[in-house]
């Protein structure tokens, strides 16, 4: 069996609320569903969320800061997700702030976790301050999440610049909450418009799907389930593993005829 070095992926965006945590949860869960050993780390100290999105909030005993400060062993802080063997969460601390951890400490922690996991997924906080620096410190690959909006794309561009400056060789883009009908109408940038502007490889297009809200309510990532976002996240996971999966077309390039009939419908 090939022994690959574990991959450490930071999920980041710059802007808040574009779907970093949802993406982390789904990508992590998706990898675990395919039999990988995955550790999800919530690096948003003071504003922890990944635990609730994963539905593991009631099982937290120790957290990231406890591990860093030596109050417990790493294995004591890791929460095992009973639904998926091989999936673990290292929750963040809710009552501390970003300065409780340094990038050097993160690197050390990740080196330790690499011994046991195939994939380490870091859910990065919004912003470009210390929390961001902590999250990217130990990573060798980045997923940049954006939505097709001016503000989110601008921040994503800044983040990509910072990641490149930090020496990241592999930066992939996830476009979240794409609304096909708006793109068709010409009122939302398409995935290719966004890729045009940001000029990094695209690894996923996630349609705006109400099932994401439902899944978050239930604390159960929807990757791989039979819905548009579930399929799109499953495809991201396969592409992460190096498979060449064609992109789902939510925006369909439309023929002149459908355009004409479409207009007549609305006029």
């Amino acid at each position: 069996m090939e022994q690959k070095e574990s991959e450490v992926i930071v999920v980041t965006s710059g802007k808040g609320g574009v779907g970093k945590t949802t993406t982390s949860a789904n990508v992590g869960t998706g990898l675990a569903k395919l039999g990988k050993k995955v550790c999800l780390i919530d690096t948003d100290i003071g504003l922890r969320n990944l635990d609730v999105v994963m539905g593991l909030e009631n099982r937290i005993v120790y957290n990231l800061v406890d591990v860093i400060e030596g109050n417990c062993r790493v294995t004591q802080a890791l929460i095992r997700d009973k639904r998926h063997p091989g999936l673990y969460l290292l929750p963040s601390a809710q009552t501390r702030d970003k300065s409780a951890v340094t990038p050097q400490q993160m690197v050390k922690l990740i080196e330790r976790l690499k011994e046991e996991f195939d994939y380490i997924i870091l859910d990065c906080p919004a912003g470009i301050e210390q929390g961001f620096q902590n999250a990217i410190a130990g990573a060798n690959r980045a997923l940049v999440v954006t939505t097709p909006e001016v503000s989110a794309i601008r921040d994503a561009d800044r983040i990509i610049g910072l990641l490149e400056a930090a020496g990241f060789k592999q930066i992939d883009l996830i476009i979240n909450r794409l609304r096909g009908e708006l793109v068709r109408r010409g009122d939302m940038m398409s995935a290719s418009d966004v890729v045009d502007i940001l000029a990094v490889p695209l690894i996923g297009v996630i349609p705006d799907d109400e099932n994401v809200v439902i899944a978050t309510n239930q604390g159960e990532p929807l990757v791989g389930t039979d819905c548009p976002a579930g399929t799109a996240y499953a495809n991201v996971v396969h592409r992460l593993l190096g498979k060449d999966i064609p992109f789902l077309n939510f925006e369909r390039s439309i023929s002149f005829w459908t355009k004409v009939t479409g207009i007549l419908h609305r006029a």
């Binding site: 601008r154 010409g186 009122d187 939302m188 940038m189 418009d193 502007i197």
Partner: peptide, 14 residues
């Protein structure tokens, strides 16, 4: 179309 407006604004901004 507004997607084009957004794209043009971003290009200049970035």
């Amino acid at each position: 179309r507004s997607y084009q407006v957004a794209k043009d604004r971003l290009k200049i901004l970035l």
